[in-house]
Amino acid sequence: MAAGGDHGSPDSYRSPLASRYASPEMCFVFSDRYKFRTWRQLWLWLAEAEQTLGLPITDEQIQEMKSNLENIDFKMAAEEEKRLRHDVMAHVHTFGHCCPKAAGIIHLGATSCYVGDNTDLIILRNALDLLLPKLARVISRLADFAKERASLPTLGFTHFQPAQLTTVGKRCCLWIQDLCMDLQNLKRVRDDLRFRGVKGTTGTQASFLQLFEGDDHKVEQLDKMVTEKAGFKRAFIITGQTYTRKVDIEVLSVLASLGASVHKICTDIRLLANLKEMEEPFEKQQIGSSAMPYKRNPMRSERCCSLARHLMTLVMDPLQTASVQWFERTLDDSANRRICLAEAFLTADTILNTLQNISEGLVVYPKVIERRIRQELPFMATENIIMAMVKAGGSRQDCHEKIRVLSQQAASVVKQEGGDNDLIERIQVDAYFSPIHSQLDHLLDPSSFTGRASQQVQRFLEEEVYPLLKPYESVMKVKAELCL
């Protein structure tokens, strides 16, 4: 049975990233139509530049190519590739079939990587351009969430054990800070992308030097003109047959890092959902379990974690691919890159769409948070109580021993009897502590235990987050809708 299948058929496997999760716009960027249309555009740009620099290419040939950029006979191309065992030459023939007058000058002087690699770089750039505003929107939604809850005390956790208090907004800023680093890295790697350009079979530009009869300047002009037509500021000066596969490492490393950030955020949300302090959106008709109707599973956060793990592992592909590119190139890269580049971007696209949807509907339960604080705060307040007693004339050592005994009794009630923490009640009825009984409410005010959390939130948002989001103001209103 021949390899390949009808990918629109229910009898043929289709990647869930495309069929179930990723956005239509990201799927289109990695589609065959987008790819092969870009090949034709690159052939047109090459012909236009070659004509401008004096090669015998007519206006009629150029116009014929322009008129057929979208006229792609995919069936013919597939048949040609089956016959020739070469995808680029299959599309040269297919393009030439609908451009008979231009057929002889299509791909003039070029090698397969002229269309293959340059198209990949265009796709990487455009895919990054799709991700950047999506990530900015996630940051914006979380920034709104953090600002609104900047002063809401909550129990902090280290080692997932109760620690000092923080605020809900401050905790959210930990998430935002990681995503801001990801946004900066995505922008950097996007701006650092260079075009492969017009380089020939081993990167020496020998074929173009021959076409222009040894004119170095025209060869350099050709490279520059096509690079500018493709919208790049610069091209690699040095290439082998391909652009260095280190570029793929750079791009997928940034995406993998984004995956790590999203995994951490969504894990926190899942843990908070278990504590009943916070939940992701839950639709009115949504079913959490087929057997347990009360369940409210954090399905979206779980999906993000599941896909983020996949995204983090994909960076190993370009690392290994770059390491086995012998001399000017081997074909070890080809099949692998067809999979890992598309999957990385479709996965990143999915987790950003999902995280935006989550961040637009996060639900906080202040009463649950308050109750958990009441359970733990008495123990945390013991040092403040000791200091207040010393100020009232008591002995630190005597007070410490009193607190120690009462704390152990209260802990026994919590752990052995399943009761509430009654340390404060014990202190309130103990005559030894009568000098500070009137101060206990103040000493137990949760806001006095959150330090500068709310001020940190305000400063972080104003100095770091809002300036970073400013270039994306025009796209901030787009909502994230999930079908599944």
Rank of each mutant, 00 (worst) to 15 (best):
P378H: 02
K82V: 12
V390R: 02
Q61R: 05
I287V: 09
T450M: 15
F449P: 04
F236K: 08
Q408C: 15
Y472L: 15
E80A: 14
Y34Q: 10
I351D: 08
S207Q: 04
Y466W: 14
P435K: 06
T321V: 05
R372S: 13
D129V: 06
I72K: 06
H93D: 07
E328L: 10
W39F: 09
C266R: 09
I176T: 06
M181Q: 15
L69M: 02
V478I: 06
L255D: 06
P24Q: 14
Q455L: 03
D182S: 08
P435Y: 15
I176E: 05
A335E: 11
G4C: 12
R338I: 10
A3R: 15
E48P: 07
D268C: 12
L258E: 12
L135M: 13
E417V: 14
E360Y: 05
I122F: 14
E302D: 08
D317E: 14
M476W: 02
G393T: 05
E279W: 14
L331N: 12
Q439T: 03
L319R: 12
T201P: 12
Q241G: 09
K295A: 07
A102T: 12
I237N: 14
L307N: 12
T167F: 01
A322N: 00
D178S: 05
P162A: 09
M26H: 09
H93N: 10
A143C: 09
T227C: 05
D216F: 02
L174C: 03
C305K: 01
Q164K: 00
E220G: 10
V92S: 05
D144Q: 15
A90S: 15
G109A: 05
I123P: 03
E383Q: 00
A392S: 09
P16C: 00
D422I: 11
L252Q: 07
C180K: 13
R234T: 10
S31Q: 09
E48R: 14
H86D: 03
L311N: 03
Q205K: 02
L346V: 12
T227R: 01
A22Y: 14
F157P: 05
E376C: 11
N297I: 14
G54K: 12
D32Y: 09
F460M: 00
M312E: 14
P293R: 10
G419A: 05
P281L: 09
E283M: 14
A3Q: 13
M292R: 11
G197F: 03
V413K: 15
H97A: 01
Q41V: 06
